[in-house]
């Protein structure tokens, strides 16, 4: 059932469009995802990421354009495609009336696995997501991070060709996020193809080999995190924060200090290959920020450059 040639993309989208009435949620996007890749959709809430994921997951009909998933057409073979997907939805859809292990057993049955096979895989997966000690507990008292890990285990029960993760760590505390990233990284190492959406640039940088930046229903850039940073930002950024009321009085004071200057309501970002040089040059001009931070450029800077806005507003 696998796609016959290695060169064939697992997902192939051209002019893919989703409309709800007169509202266009996804506006003619093009992308391909290759086998074994970790591919991300990075963008703010409302950019069209979830709608795109639902179309790939065959739980939302496409409005226009072309979409092939695992070499099949979602319009005609939704159930057949879903048989080979592992889906981690944005909001947990676990069965609270069942135990942790039963959630896996019963889900495997929907993919036509035998009870023995379900039991074997459930135990393996509970080990993998570090929930073996909670196997017999009901789902409800689990923490948010545990529920996400159980959802990931559930999505792996059919040994999917392709995993779809919609905002996998939204709402989790930092420790739970790192644990989840570690598990997803291991899946990636095993060659599982991951497609994920996120509005966290650190998540995209950690997990994605390649990503597209989405904004207002369109793809605005595509590449690896390093490529995108190299293309749309500088190596470093100097962040200046001034005492309240000062920043507004400094019109024109930053000209020529850096390759590019972004003024945010609470700070000024100066883009340059060497941030320390910018700091020194600013001192020479008599600028006295309260705090100075020199850091590497991130995807957040790429997004700011491309859209003029922050990812998380």
């Amino acid at each position: 059932m696998s796609v016959d040639s290695a060169s064939q993309p697992l997902i192939h989208a051209r002019g893919l469009t989703k409309r709800f009435g007169t509202f266009t949620a996804v506006d003619a996007v093009d992308f391909d995802v290759a086998r074994g890749e970790a591919f991300g959709f990075l963008g703010p809430n409302g950019a069209g990421k979830t709608s795109t994921m639902r179309m790939i997951g065959c739980t939302s009909p496409i409005s226009d354009g072309e979409l092939g998933v695992l070499g099949l057409d979602p319009r005609h073979h939704g159930p057949q495609i879903r048989a080979r997907l592992g889906v981690v939805p944005q909001h947990d859809t676990l069965d609270n009336e069942l135990t942790v292990r039963e959630n896996l057993l019963i889900y495997g049955r929907y993919f036509g696995l035998t009870r023995e096979e379900c039991a074997r895989r459930a135990d393996e997966l509970l080990d993998f997501v570090q929930l073996a000690d909670r196997a017999g507990d009901l789902v409800e008292p689990l923490s948010g991070g545990m529920k996400r890990r159980l959802t990931i285990a559930r999505s792996l029960i059919n040994e999917p060709d392709l995993m779809l993760l919609d905002e996998p760590t939204t709402g989790l505390d930092p420790q739970a996020r790192h644990l989840l990233w570690d598990r997803l990284y291991r899946l990636k190492q095993r060659g599982v193809t991951l497609v994920l959406t996120t509005h966290y640039m650190d998540e995209a940088e950690q997990l994605c080999d390649r990503l597209v930046v989405m904004d207002k229903a369109r793809i605005v850039a595509e590449g690896s995190p390093q490529q995108l940073i190299a293309r749309f930002s500088t190596r470093e950024v100097a962040e200046f924060r001034f005492a309240p009321g000062i920043q507004e009085t400094l019109d024109g004071q930053f000209e020529g200090l850096a390759e590019r200057v972004e003024r945010l309501p609470d700070r000024v970002l100066l883009y340059a290959d060497d941030g320390e040089d910018v700091v020194l040059a600013a001192r020479d001009r008599g600028l006295h920020p309260e705090t100075v931070l020199v850091r590497r450029s991130t995807l957040e800077d790429v997004f700011l450059r491309l859209t003029g806005r922050s990812l998380i507003e």
């Binding site: 879903r82 997907l85 859809t93 069965d95 009336e97 889900y107 929907y110």
Partner: peptide, 14 residues
């Protein structure tokens, strides 16, 4: 509420 039918619909079921 628990949306398990949505979870089921992510499998080959119609």
């Amino acid at each position: 509420w628990n949306k398990i039918f949505h979870a089921m619909f992510a499998t080959p079921i119609r």
